[in-house]
Amino acid sequence: MKIIRIIVQLLVLYGFLLIGEAIQALLQLPMPGSIIGFLLLFGALLLKIYPLEWIDAGATFLLSFLSLYFIPATVGVVDYGPLFSGKGVWLLPIVSISTLITMAAAGFVSQYMANRQAAKKEVS
């Protein structure tokens, strides 16, 4: 029975994706349809339009193999060997440095704001 429930819920997830893609195409949004589908599902869960139990098993199952689904894409690097033997090799340190800047900004700002919020609570 659990397998049937998972399959049905996977189809529901696919349904949200199709709706998201339809909205994206209809409104010409510069955003992936999957993100629109994600927002629709998150909204439906928050507003209690769609209960968690009707999607939980399928979503958890699908997400437990998440890294498998992008392996066909990473294998595509096979076609970009020449890029990395030339100037393109500079893209790697750029990505690394920009990643550390991202982490510093996100970590510092969130911690600073959390401390400020905590200090405010103590005063009041």
Binding site: Y14, E21, G33, G37, F38, L41, I55, D56, L62, Y69
Partner: peptide, 11 residues
């Protein structure tokens, strides 16, 4: 399966 997986991140 990538597309449905992105939707599933809502859970």
């Amino acid at each position: 399966l990538l597309g449905p997986a992105v939707v599933a991140l809502a859970v």
